[in-house]
Amino acid sequence: NQASVVANQLIPINTALTLVMMRSEVVTPVGIPAEDIPRLVSMQVNRAVPLGTTLMPDMVRGYA
């Protein structure tokens, strides 16, 4: 089972991601792999991401 990136807090739209906003968790469906967390830092979300939501590739500008 692969860990995915999950929002550690509410992340408002257009917010640049920081390490404290994300955690890794084994979830279904699988989202962005946890090993990509360092790559996600400073990328912006293109929608509001509620606490506990799995980050999907289409939620992060420039990721996919």
Rank of each mutant, 00 (worst) to 15 (best):
N1P: 11
N1S: 15
N1R: 06
N1C: 04
N1M: 15
Q2R: 10
Q2G: 14
Q2S: 07
A3Q: 10
S4T: 04
S4W: 02
V5Y: 01
V5P: 02
V5L: 04
V6S: 03
V6Q: 04
V6H: 02
V6T: 06
A7Q: 02
A7N: 02
A7D: 01
A7M: 05
Q9R: 14
Q9T: 15
L10Q: 15
L10A: 15
I11N: 01
P12H: 11
P12Y: 10
P12D: 14
P12L: 07
P12T: 14
P12I: 06
I13A: 13
I13Q: 14
I13M: 09
I13W: 09
N14F: 06
N14W: 08
N14L: 07
T15K: 12
T15A: 15
T15L: 05
T15F: 06
A16W: 13
A16H: 15
L17R: 00
L17A: 00
L17F: 02
T18Y: 03
T18W: 03
T18G: 06
T18D: 07
L19G: 11
V20I: 10
M21Q: 06
M22I: 12
M22Y: 02
R23A: 13
R23E: 05
S24M: 10
S24K: 06
E25L: 06
E25Y: 11
V26L: 12
V27I: 11
V27K: 11
T28Q: 10
T28D: 12
T28A: 07
P29D: 05
V30S: 13
V30M: 14
V30G: 11
G31F: 02
G31L: 01
I32K: 00
I32H: 00
I32P: 00
I32W: 02
I32E: 01
P33T: 13
P33I: 11
P33Q: 06
A34I: 10
E35Y: 11
D36Q: 14
D36E: 15
I37S: 05
I37L: 09
P38C: 04
R39H: 08
R39L: 09
L40W: 02
L40Q: 00
L40S: 00
L40N: 01
S42C: 03
S42P: 02
S42T: 14
S42M: 14
M43Y: 12
M43H: 10
M43D: 03
Q44R: 10
Q44H: 13
Q44G: 05
V45H: 00
V45P: 03
N46D: 12
N46W: 06
N46I: 15
N46L: 11
N46K: 10
R47V: 12
A48T: 13
A48K: 14
V49F: 02
V49Q: 02
P50T: 13
P50C: 04
P50M: 08
L51G: 13
L51V: 09
L51I: 14
G52I: 02
G52M: 05
G52V: 02
G52K: 04
G52D: 08
T53D: 10
T54Y: 02
T54M: 04
T54G: 03
T54I: 09
L55N: 00
L55W: 01
L55T: 01
M56G: 04
M56R: 11
M56Q: 10
P57K: 06
P57V: 06
P57A: 15
P57W: 07
D58T: 12
D58A: 13
D58C: 03
D58Y: 10
D58F: 09
D58V: 09
D58M: 08
M59F: 14
M59C: 03
M59D: 15
M59W: 12
M59N: 06
M59T: 08
V60N: 01
V60W: 02
R61G: 08
R61Q: 13
R61P: 12
R61K: 07
R61V: 15
G62Q: 09
G62T: 06
G62M: 09
Y63H: 05
A64F: 04
A64I: 13
